[in-house]
Nucleic acid binder design. Structure first.
Lengths: 335, 335
DNA sequence: CTGAAAGCGCTTACAG
DNA sequence: CTGAAAGCGCTTACAG
């Protein structure tokens, strides 16, 4: 341990550096250590520290698809909520592939302080080993012992169905993701159920990767059949999918929203700028990151333990954040 | 070490697990170890391993602004190029803030196998401690001992200037980033120099964060003066900036490209879908990630050492990848 | 071909 | 208030 150049023992240094010197180390020695640390530019080595403490300062955010700008906000907020003691790092999957339980096992070998897992599949959630510090984000309908911060995607989907029904649409189609995440299943089922309840026919669907080009091709392939069936609105599981649909629809010569109304989920910053601007269910990425970061910190630091009442704590565990339908001219021509 | 349940020593297990058993461990023992590993689901603990080897399997990608979808491709390619032995994790800065040398120092305590550093400032590059395995991405004009994979942003900027000159523009403005990265300086200077060489007046500039709304405000604030000066084209350091400019220009009632031509850098997937579609200098994110991943692996594994001729190796060290001007209707109405 | 042993850098009871 | 010592899980010379 380099900083023993301060002329004290490694134990003293460790105590000072980790902020546990309170009433245990003399002011003189504290000053000596701090001077030596500053002089040498010493930083605690994570490898040694993790080995003896059992965990490292790393928190891993497992993101399904970082090409979604949704994550920029989420990451910044989560980092702020976690604070300086943790190092938030992202593990991104290849586009279109969902992290499986084996990804968690691999990452577990890093002994991270915790995991933030966005949009998991039920299988992924099941595969988290007991004892792991993990918080699930946007994992609706998953029955899991881990704290979860959800978004009201079902409410947003229902609101969207109501919006389309009020505009007079009778036949609607749904563009789903190929990614097996619970949030996508809930978005789809909630929308289709609400649509059916409102008397709309909602039997047509396709799915694609979360990439504009893939969504474009999927729509182009499905459209002839949908047109024949009288579909007048397409709802997409993410805005990115919707961008592809918008483009394919324009290429096919469709007027939007007159011939086809289009809407998505996420309300990405780009959605105000598409042609036409996109109606979307806004999901609060920043709040999601902040709430999840707080929940994880509580879990790691054990603030969670005692405040339980009925097995759920008061800490916002299993919080649900609201969604909001943002209507633009891709569905309502005059918006 | 749990897997000693195989009835052999920890040394034997370590050798087998790390693939160094070749001709040193009997087939019988290898089989026993492999069976035990499979049975227990054993994964090497990184903390212990990093401590004794001196480095962990983690490779950290330092990204200036992950909200830029540019990074999705880059990450996937870099991961593939690095291979299974490394774990690629992203460290994202807060939007608008550039990583400083202290960020590297913090991350160094994780003892990563290496760093991939995108769009560094000269200061950041200088702050990388000697002996670190690091590859710089998109770091034009930085004088550094570290291997670098560059994009021909200067060539793209010049091509863009030529394109605008050929369309008859005489007064052009430049929308820069507030982020202090060498690539942004080179983009700007190369564009302004080429524009001047072509007889265009190019003295007007503004800058903003890489967020659509910020760029929109920056343009709205600058436009009155630019209009008075006769500016007819605005070139933006990234496509994301350009989206904001497009929106502000439309709000101001400008016809694009008749009243104002707009162009950017990156050719993000969204740029084909803006209104109007955006002219942009395409930067090959996938190739960039792949080349950088290969270069880092060579550096880590020492493949680099002997193949030097004049101090540069044959491995694609200091590679420059081409850029390509993609003309769309935000500059050429008929495109 | 294999095991016993040292050591990586840190933290934490434990004596003093 | 402080230091000596054990131990976290792994890897790697080193004997045998």
């Amino acid at each position: 341990m380099v900083a023993r150049e301060a002329g004290v023992s490694t134990a003293t240094v460790s105590l000072v550096v980790s902020g546990k010197a309170a009433g245990r180390i003399s002011a003189a020695n504290q000053a000596k250590v701090e001077a030596a640390v500053a002089r040498l530019g010493y930083i605690v080595d994570t490898a040694g520290s993790s080995l003896s403490k059992g965990f490292s300062p790393v928190v891993v955010l497992i993101a399904t698809d970082i090409s979604n700008p949704f994550y920029a906000d989420l990451t910044a907020s989560a980092r702020a909520a976690l604070g300086e003691r943790y190092e938030l790092l992202l593990s991104a999957n290849d586009p279109g592939s969902q992290a499986g339980p084996e990804a968690i096992r691999r990452l577990l070998s890093l002994r991270p302080a915790g995991f933030l897992i966005d949009a998991p599949s039920a299988e992924l959630a099941d595969g988290i080993p007991p004892g792991t510090n993990a918080v699930l984000l946007d994992a609706p309908g998953i029955d899991t012992p881990w704290p979860t911060v959800n978004l009201d995607v079902a409410g947003g989907a229902a609101e969207l169905a109501g919006h389309l029904a009020s505009l007079g649409h009778r036949h609607v189609a749904y563009v789903d993701s190929v990614i097996d995440a619970a949030t996508f299943r809930v978005r789809r089922e909630a929308f289709l159920t609400a649509a059916a309840d409102l008397g709309m026919e909602a039997s047509h669907a396709t799915r694609s990767l979360t990439a504009i080009d893939d969504a474009r091709r999927a729509f182009a392939a499905a459209w002839p059949e949908w047109r024949a069936a009288g579909v007048t609105a397409a709802v997409c599981c993410t805005d990115t999918h919707a961008y592809g649909v918008l483009e394919a629809a324009r290429s096919a010569g469709l007027a939007i929203p007159e011939d086809l109304a289009v809407a998505g989920f996420d309300d990405l910053p780009y959605s105000r700028h598409t042609s036409p601007p996109l109606t979307s269910v806004r999901l609060p990425s920043g709040e999601l990151g902040a709430a999840a970061g707080r929940a994880l910190r509580a879990l790691i630091e054990g603030t969670d333990g005692e405040s339980r009442t009925d097995g759920r704590s008061l800490l916002g565990r299993d919080a649900v954040l609201g969604s909001e339908l943002v209507v633009r001219s891709s569905t309502a021509g005059n918006a």
